[in-house]
Design a protein around this nucleic acid. Structure first.
Length: 495
RNA sequence: CGGGGUAUGGCGCAGUCUGGUAGCGCGGAAGUUUUGGGUACUUCAGGUCGUAGGUUCGAAUCCUGCUACCCCGACCA
């Protein structure tokens, strides 16, 4: 907290207050500042950055749908993302995010943010471009190899496009954190990374430029670090569950990041890249409640122990004997996609970079660190891999770009236009994101479009239904269709 | 980084072998028709055939260099 206040002041409090906050939030901010909770002013500012329009008429939107599949798209998520106009490739492994894709990406980011904040992590934003000197301190400048995109500025200074941020965040913390009283600290950001993959493929599933949420924890001792690890572990379970995904934590190799404790979070999808083996119990487990005590070490360790008590491994870490010991009816052998990876690596960076604080005993103590990654851009693809059918995408409610697709089956028919406009307005007023297909198109084209972009609910309004005072509500996932009065339809969609 | 391939309108493709100045489907525009699961027809617009050079009277087509992209393998959030 002390650290946060200091940071707000240092980064220019005047700049923050000059931003166009609403008068209400400004007042709230002022009151909070007086009560000492200055950090919330920063939060207001961050939230305002992410305000975005909710509902949209398709004729005013930018949704470049493709009827045919571009030949380069190999896997279903890549095909559907291109066809649904979510992304556009700009170079190998580099994509532009179009409106529909960006909306999903932002929804994912929102969920990640909420759960990171809930677990006590604090959002920052570090740059994409870093100085080579920083990486020389940790010794990784030479170790990282060709995956690192190295660039020079006009003064011939060596720079790089960050593939990760351990060094930078360690530099930030060592500069400002001097006392054990400032700990524990967990800083995260959601920022674009670049890893110059030899062979990018599968669209945003394995791209060179990708969005990553990376959190970094700093603790005085190993016990504290372990608790930080467990908190992130729990936050991850909640994060993925909220996206409708069954994410299974699997013990992982620490790889080039180093350390001795690491878990990958794998979601099951028939088109997943890696082979995974786990106990059937994982499929039934539900994530911890939002109200769980993140600050209680015993509780957090309990979550960790519970979720790691049964067998789960990717093919690299697979122990056939241990797996065979499970009752055959409880064995699950499937394919999976890695969507998160957490590490505890102790002093691997803090030691060489001299990130230390004075402990209660007055002695200098090197910080214990961990890092925790989630790939939001990859998650967009992973979600599609896990949620689609022959007709297109099927978004889980929590990440859907719009909740409802409203199809006007006869644009130009006064009664139909009126009914659609009414319904659109009512949904909008109820706070339900709706995409209104008001194009002058054939019904078939509208059905195909809505199925392709996968909005959870479809409301279909045409002259035939109107004559009976009814609209059709279709559930994209089940395909179930019901003829309802507009009132009943509205009730169902706002429930 | 090894191996294989592709490059022709926004997308998918034919034409390349056998050189003669570019075509089909989808998409786009205009219209007629149609209207509850991608309607049919008509008309129109849109391409210096990835790029640089060479051969030739003439190059999308043959030759050489370069570039980009894709696929398989090793590697990765």
């Amino acid at each position: 907290m002390i650290f946060l206040v200091a940071t707000c002041l240092k980064t220019g409090f005047s700049r923050i207050s000059s931003l166009p906050l609403s008068s209400q939030s400004l007042t709230e901010g002022a009151v909070l500042a007086m009560t000492g909770r200055l950090s919330l002013i920063c939060k207001n500012r961050i939230d305002s950055t992410y305000s975005r329009p909710s509902s949209m008429r398709l004729t005013r939107f930018f949704l470049p749908i493709l009827r045919e599949t571009p030949k380069e798209a190999e896997i279903v998520s890549h095909r559907l993302m291109l066809r649904a106009g979510m992304i556009r490739q700009e170079a190998a492994g580099i994509y532009a995010w179009l409106p529909l894709g960006l909306r999903v990406l932002n929804k994912i980011n929102d969920i990640i943010r909420e759960e990171q904040n809930r677990a006590g992590a604090i959002e920052i934003l570090m740059p994409t471009i870093q100085s080579a000197d920083l990486w020389r301190e940790s010794g990784r400048y030479d170790a990282y190899g060709k995956e690192m995109l190295r660039i020079k500025d006009r003064h011939e200074r060596e720079m790089l496009f960050g593939p990760t941020n351990e060094e930078m965040v360690t530099a930030i913390v060592r500069a400002h954190v001097k006392s054990y009283k400032d700990l524990p600290l967990n800083l995260y950001h959601i920022q674009w990374k670049f890893r110059d993959e030899v062979r990018p493929r599968f669209g945003v599933m394995r791209s060179r430029e990708f969005l990553m949420k990376d959190a970094y924890s700093f603790d005085l001792d190993a016990e504290g670090a372990r608790h930080s690890y467990n908190k992130m572990f729990t936050a991850y379970l909640r994060t993925f569950a909220r996206m409708g995904l069954k994410a299974i934590p699997m013990r992982a190799d620490t790889g080039p990041i180093g350390g001795n404790l690491s878990h990958e979070f794998i979601i099951l999808a028939s088109t997943g890249e890696s082979e995974v083996f786990c106990h059937k119990d994982f499929l039934e487990k539900s994530a911890p409640e939002a109200s769980i005590a993140f600050d209680d070490r015993t509780v957090m360790q309990g979550v960790f122990d519970d979720w790691t008590s049964r067998y789960a491994a990717t093919s690299e870490m697979h122990d056939a004997q241990a797996f065979a010991a499970i009752a055959p009816s409880d064995q699950v052998s499937a394919r999976g996609i890695e969507v998160g990876h957490i590490f505890y690596f102790g002093t691997k960076y803090s030691e060489p970079m001299h990130a230390a604080v004075n402990g209660p005993d007055g002695k200098e103590t090197v910080l214990q660190m961990g890092s925790y990654g989630i790939g939001p851009s990859r998650l967009v693809a992973a979600l599609i891999e896990a949620n689609h059918d022959d007709n297109g995408i099927i978004w889980p409610d929590s990440v859907a770009p719009f909740k409802v697709g409203l199809a006007n089956l006869k644009v130009g028919d006064a009664a139909t236009d009126q009914a659609c406009a009414d319904f659109y307005e009512k949904l909008e007023r109820a706070g339900v994101d709706v995409l209104y297909d008001d194009r002058d198109e054939r019904p078939g084209a509208k059905f195909a479009t809505l199925d392709l972009i996968g909005l959870p609910s479809q409301v279909i309004i045409g002259p035939k239904g109107i004559a009976d005072g009814l609209v059709e509500v279709k559930d994209r996932r089940t395909g179930a269709r019901d003829m309802l009065t507009p009132e009943a339809a509205l009730n169902r969609l706002t429930a």
